[in-house]
């Protein structure tokens, strides 16, 4: 379903990776800090553009060397960033509703908050939440937009052991319940093994 060939020159090295993922798969990009993992996610999300290559999602071409890139806001890619990037001036409820397109936002938001066990936080601002609660809110927000693909950038790095265990359960639940590809970035091998259907090791922009 996702077919990406990402080529980009960075100051220290060149990223040149191929990623393919089908519905329901969890692809883990595993590598040390600074190996180009996050840039790969940014390229798939449309926040930065490759120098060449292609990004195809189903029948849509998000990027191709010979055409104008598909803008990030039209890609329908859910992206949970490393520090969650929750909007600090919005409550959990308003964060989750932000990407919803249709009517009945309030009910849908509450249902999602319920699903992630954070309904009691609906009126809380991000600075009032723990790391695990922020992570759940960020995933709920990404899923609220009903994405075709979910990107998770080090989603567990800021969590303690208990929250990390709960978060892994959340990710495996999403994999089971939603029929979309998930690409997760991590530098923790144990985490990678727990959730991945395929693990791509990346070092200085190359798959090894």
């Amino acid at each position: 379903m996702l077919d990406a060939h990402l080529v980009k020159n960075l100051p220290d090295f060149k990223i040149d990776v191929n990623i393919k993922s089908a519905k329901g798969e969890v692809i883990v990009l595993f590598g040390s800090s600074g190996s180009g993992k996050t840039t790969c996610l940014d390229m798939i999300a449309g926040l930065v553009h490759p120098d060449s290559g292609h990004i195809r999602m189903g029948e849509n071409t998000y990027f191709s060397s010979n055409q104008k890139p598909f803008p990030a806001e039209k890609r329908n890619v859910g992206y949970v960033m490393q520090d969650y990037a929750l909007f600090p001036h919005m409550t959990a409820d308003r964060n989750v509703q932000y990407g919803m397109k249709s009517v009945g936002k309030s009910e849908k938001s509450l249902a999602l908050l319920d699903q992630f066990g954070i309904r009691h936080l609906r009126n809380a601002y991000p600075h009032e939440m723990s790391g695990g609660e922020k992570q759940r809110t960020a995933i709920a927000r990404a899923l609220a937009a009903e994405p075709n693909l979910l990107l998770l950038d080090e989603p567990l790095s800021a969590l303690d052991d208990k929250a990390r265990h709960d978060a892994l359960t959340v990710i495996t639940d999403i994999q089971r319940d939603l029929d979309i590809p998930i690409i997760m970035v991590t530098h923790n091998w144990t985490e990678a093994e727990k959730v991945a259907t395929s693990i791509y090791k990346i070092e200085k922009g190359r798959l090894i």
Binding site: A45, A72, E73, N76, A85, R141, A142
Partner: peptide, 27 residues
Amino acid sequence: VDGKLEAAAHTLGASKWRVFRTIALPL
């Protein structure tokens, strides 16, 4: 204003104008 917040809003389908109005302007 943290550029990541604006980027996150774009990935949620927000246009440039909506990102300005709902994220950049209030912050």
